[in-house]
Write a protein that binds this DNA or RNA. Structure first.
Lengths: 201, 201
DNA sequence: CGATCACCCTGACATAAGTCACATGCCCGG
DNA sequence: CCGGGCATGTGACTTATGTCAGGGTGATCG
């Protein structure tokens, strides 16, 4: 019997996934979490064979939770299940020690199969996604460039960003400018969006 | 036996929902669609008792599909199932003749119950959401104001928007300015985001 | 019929955003 | 221990945005 933990913030989707996996004879849902912190805590207590983590969750996101669970529960295989097949996400998932990276667009029939393969020691990654991650190259942005992009993504003005980050306005402008240049777009809005899309933030 | 059609673009979620509903004795999944257009076509052929539609789908979105299905299959109850409980979405769903508006955050156990209530002729809406939709008031933006906001949401410059909409740059600036004023924010980025959040686009 | 409103445009203006050149200091790898 | 990259800053500059004050049209409605 494979003992599975489920972490997904949308109740209905989580329940539906539990129903889907419950149909399999050799799988057992032993815990369900609604956010990253709860997932880490539960994994420590329940020690499941597999932790299936969504990325987009309140609190600690799935990637952070993955790293923590790997550190705290060595025998637990971590699988990432996400809506967005962003190259940067895949990269970070691998760095966090994940055994699988699945997107919610994928075929429902193969989820259980993926879990079994992971338990058998395999790694499960969509080949197309792996290629995209490799061809996209690593994150070109420096820490500070990422900071100003996220701080400004909500429509904040340069002055706002400078205040929030305790920087001078000129510095913020310079970071934004270099980020825009690196990403190869025309303004910070496009920069924030493409960076987001690639999982660079 | 209640005959249910499922429309949801994420394969895995759709399969999981099917598994969840398949556990109920009195429910039967008679069709599954991956986008709005397919949902309309299938509903016309299969004539289900209930159509469970996601909003965020490629092609025709769930709200558009809801209106079309209501027109083409009068006996079919349409239920909206969405990630985002945006007031404008709820309003549009009601105008499209939907019988229920559920968010994916909600409790999984109540989905089947909601379907039964809808078939019995009830309307199922989250009370908190209904209150929010009423207090938020109707969409304050004019058609053109919405147009410029969506055209500019990808980081496009004023000139880009003007070209795409066959308008003069000054006109675009004016629409953006009035949209910003109406929404009560400081720039078009915030305007686009809050409008999006409220389901005004 | 006249008021009102969405729609479209122009021109002028103030401010915000983005670019460039050039500093300083820190730390890390060759 | 020196070069290069990153973090941080300044000042000057160009361009993009947002605001204001107008002036036209056509449709709708009391």
């Amino acid at each position: 019997m494979i003992r599975v933990m489920l972490a997904e913030d949308q109740n209905l989707v989580r329940g539906a996934l539990a129903a889907l996996l419950g149909l399999e004879e050799d799988l057992e849902i032993v815990a369900e979490a609604a956010d990253g912190d709860e997932a880490v805590a539960l994994a420590g207590r329940v020690r499941p064979d597999v932790a299936l983590l969504d990325i987009e969750m309140p609190g600690a996101d799935g990637l952070t939770a993955a790293a923590r669970i790997r550190a705290a529960v060595p025998g637990c295989h971590v699988m990432i299940l996400t809506t967005f097949g962003r190259p940067g996400y895949l990269r970070r998932a691998m760095e966090a020690g994940a055994s699988a990276f699945l997107i919610k667009d994928g075929p429902a029939e193969q989820l259980a199969a993926a879990i079994r393969r992971v338990v058998a020691g395999e790694r499960v990654i969509d080949p197309a996604l792996a290629a995209a991650a490799l061809s996209a190259g690593p994150n070109p942005l420096s820490q500070r460039e990422r900071d100003v992009l996220v701080a400004g993504s909500g429509g904040a003005t340069i002055a706002d960003i400078a205040t929030r980050l305790h920087l001078s306005e000129g510095t913020v402008r310079n970071y934004l400018s270099s980020a825009i240049t690196k990403v190869g777009v025309r303004n910070r809005i496009e920069a924030a969006q493409t960076a987001e899309r690639n999982g660079w933030l």
